[in-house]
Every structure is written in C-alpha cells, then in structure tokens.
Design a binder for these strands. Sequence first.
DNA 1: CGCCACTTTGAATTAGCTCAAATTCCGTGG
DNA 2: CCACGGAATTTGAGCTAATTCAAAGTGGCG
Lengths: 265, 265
Amino acid sequence: MLQTTLATPSAPVHLPRAAMTRSADAIETARRDDEAGRRMIAALGQLNTALAPQRRVVHAGDVIYQAGERFGNLYVLNAGFIKIVNLTSDGREQVVGLKFRGDWLGFDGIANGQYSCDAVAMDTGEVWTIRYDALLAACVQQPTLLTVLHEAMSREIAQDRNSLMSVCTLPADARVAEFLHYWAGSLARRGLRADQITLRMTRAEIGNYLGMTLETVSRALSKLARGQVIAFPEKGRRDIRIPDIRALSAFVQQSLAPEAATMLQ
Amino acid sequence: MLQTTLATPSAPVHLPRAAMTRSADAIETARRDDEAGRRMIAALGQLNTALAPQRRVVHAGDVIYQAGERFGNLYVLNAGFIKIVNLTSDGREQVVGLKFRGDWLGFDGIANGQYSCDAVAMDTGEVWTIRYDALLAACVQQPTLLTVLHEAMSREIAQDRNSLMSVCTLPADARVAEFLHYWAGSLARRGLRADQITLRMTRAEIGNYLGMTLETVSRALSKLARGQVIAFPEKGRRDIRIPDIRALSAFVQQSLAPEAATMLQ
DNA sequence: CGCCACTTTGAATTAGCTCAAATTCCGTGG
DNA sequence: CCACGGAATTTGAGCTAATTCAAAGTGGCG
C-alpha cells in the first residue's frame, strides 16, 4: 500500500482536475463509459462487414492461443468470457487479464512475433479470428478501422495500468470489491444486466488475478456479504447479487480512510 | 504470492514450452531482445525522416502530458527517462510505468480522447512530439510505420502484464531484484552500459512502483548488497553496480525456492 | 447416493508495514 | 572552503494484514 505521496519537487501539480467536483466527475465518467461501450459494440458490426472474420464457438477450457505460439491472428470476442494467463519460465502462472464481449485478444503477440500469454475461454462463447496482415491491409483502405484497433489497444493499456494500481494501492478486501465493481461495470457497459453476476472463476483464480490467496478472497467476500455490499442467492456462491454498485465503490473508499472505518466488521 | 497452481480442468497444457531447455530458452530470449532493441532504435530514424517530429528538451520534473488533458499527440522518447504516474479520483497515486529511449508515450489517451496518466521526466532528455492524426495519415502511406507503432503498443501491453505478474507473484526482495534486472536489461537492449545504473528515482518512488514501502526497498537493496548481487560505489547510494546481471535472476529464482534458500540472509 | 472439487472458517505464523531514531548526502549561503 | 539544514536513506523494534496450515462444510454431477 502507499505510504508517502510522491510529492517530490519533480511531481506535477494537478490543477485542472481539482477544479472539477467529484460528482460531476462521476457523471462525466459514466457518460464516457456508456459511449465507449456503445462504440465497442458498434465496432463489432464494422469489423464483421469489413473483414468477415472466421467465427469459432469456444467452450470453457478451450485455448484461443498459447504463449510461444507464432503470432498471426488477432481475435475479437463476440460472446463469452476469457482469461489471459501469463506464465514465466520458472513456472509462475498468473491471470493478467479478463476479456468480455467486444474485447480484442492477442495484441501481446505483435511485438515479438509470438504470443506471450495464454488465452483461455472460461465459458461458452464466440471468438472471431482476424488475420493480422489482412487487418492491416483493410486498415489502409479504411482508416476508421485503424481507429477502432488503436482504441482497443489503448483501452487494454489503460486497463492493465488500473489493475496494477489496484494491486499496489488497495488492501485485499478493497481489491475484491473493486474487482466486482470492474466486472459489473464491464457488463453494464455492454448493455448486460450487472446487478447479478456469475463469476466463472474459482476463488483460487480470482485470488491469483488479484494477488492474494483463495482464503483471503473468500474472507473478503464473506465480509462484503456481511456488510450487505453484496449478497449470495439462496443456493450456491458462484452467483453474486450486487444491490447497488455504488456500495462497492463506497467500500473501497472506506477501506482507504484510516479513521472511523472500523464501526462494524 | 501464488498459492496453488491454477491446474483446474480448464487450464491449458503447455507442451511445446517444456520441450525447450532452459538455457536454449535464455539464449533465444537474449537474441530476440537484442533484435527488438535494434529495431526499436532503428524505428527512431524512420520516424524522424517520415514525420520530422517536433523535438523538445525536457528536464527532471517536466510534465510531458497530464491526466485529463485532451489527447492529440503521441510522444517518442529519444533520450532521457520518464515515469508514468496514474492517479485516481480518491487521491491514490502510483508509478505504473517507466520509459526509456525509443519508447512511446501517450497510448493511454487514444481510447477516451484524453490521457489517463501523467508522464513526468526524471532526467534531462529529448521528447519527440507526434500528432496522432498526422501519424495515422503517414501510416496509411507507409505501412511499415504502422508496424512500428503497433509493435510499440504491443510491447507496452506485454510489459504492463509483466509488471503485474511481478507484483502479484514475487516477494518484496525478489521484486526489487527483478526491477533492477529489468532496468539493466532495458539499458542493455538500447546498447547502453548496464553494469552500472543510476537510479533516478527515490526509494519512495521505487517502492510505489513495486507496491511496497520505501523501507522495504531499502532493506531489499541492503540484502542484495550483502549477498554481492549488487554493490554500491564508495560514495552515494543512487548508483548501483551490477557485477553480473544473471545474479539478479538467480536471486529471484532462489527466493521462489522454499527450501534450502535460507543459508545466508 | 457418494465422491470430489470448491468453499468457508479458524488458529497460528510471518512478511511487510508503521513508527521512530540515527546517519548520510547534497545544495546553499556565509 | 566549510558549516548548516533539509531531504533521502538506513536500520531497529513492534505490530498487523495477509498467508499458511488445518478441518469442516457445501454443492454439483456421475
């Protein structure tokens, strides 16, 4: 967790942001998210007509691509849910990303000519395969395609940084809360219902993604449920009901406030 | 840290990688890195002739771009050293990336039309400013430029994932060791001397980047020095001598092996 | 119906954090 | 040139959040 602010002489002064009130900021963010979501789904149609990509139905456990495999294709997820797993030569293995409808896969392969991660389906879904060279050719003809592509890459970069930030600056409980918030937000942005989400990951996978153990994930979920921030339906604990997504953000904020936060555990 | 492998039924089997021996793997990686480094520097020349970018000399503390600012330019670092700082509405602040010569900056701004991070110079250097629309236009004329651009974005995605992986799966000491390894490697890949590096970050900044406190960074560095993995020159502790970069990797490996690792602290 | 994987919860342990104090470094001004 | 002061660093000691280890509970599926 953070300790000191980095208020070195070299740190920048952030004037413009301070001028915007918190709530206006939130509304602005929501609007932009909505629009981004719409654009992302619209891009699917454009891709489809421009490239007529090969479609493939995948099931839980199917590997879309694997680290080390020669790069040649990008993929777009039209339905389902996919995890990106990074692994090192010494055997460490980690979930470094989660992909939903409209997300692209395989960017990591461009630089070195081979993929550096595994992409594994967590659910039944549909993946579109797009040959990279064909895509480039199409982009030259049709510059809006290029925009779509770059936006997808940009989004991925921003998201990865948010993940890192979350892992580095939030305590475990808050990380789980933010994870659920992110998931619900991802669904909402795609026009799907977000008040009831079905985690298709085990506690171990969630913990791996968030940099904690499965027990800690379990405890965090229990605590969130105790605090009414989430709820489990009668039977089973894979489904999570989120009565109010703002309660998740509030929980994160609360766990950052040192004082007054410890009323009820 | 990791607890269980994610060897769920849905986990992929990694056959091809196992067939390659560790050392061959290392050599292959080194070769690819070298080539990537050369390509990255070569790309600078290409950019220069194709776009004649505006050059700007920056000094420590100068802000290249700031979160919230309208997106319009990408930047390429021709000399110097830059940190990327992410910040949240609740005031958390984190270094999420470090950029060296040949790296691009500003990709995070493409998706939302505004930058989502701050880029701050840590040192005297030169930044090239490239208008994004001009770049797109040039890419259509000159598809190799497009390749250069995409490779840069791809590299960034892969690097961000490695950061996340490091933070999530390594103990603090090893994270510091890997950080130094990454830094030295970054210099080496650019043809710079890597046996003596000058950290232009305080312990607090390093800790922030690695998700630990400045004290932990300090202790980790002391431990590395005690183990001869690194050395401090007579006066000052900002410079770090790295007699053998492989010792850093070895240290990381060792701290992952539970047994037999605790001979000397 | 019973197995097996997943989950929950508890108790003990520990890595890393917080707090505190001493030390070193470096720029600045006398 | 040297003394001074503030910032950065180091190191120690105690504390806490999260891990490890262990055991019991639950649910899904053949």
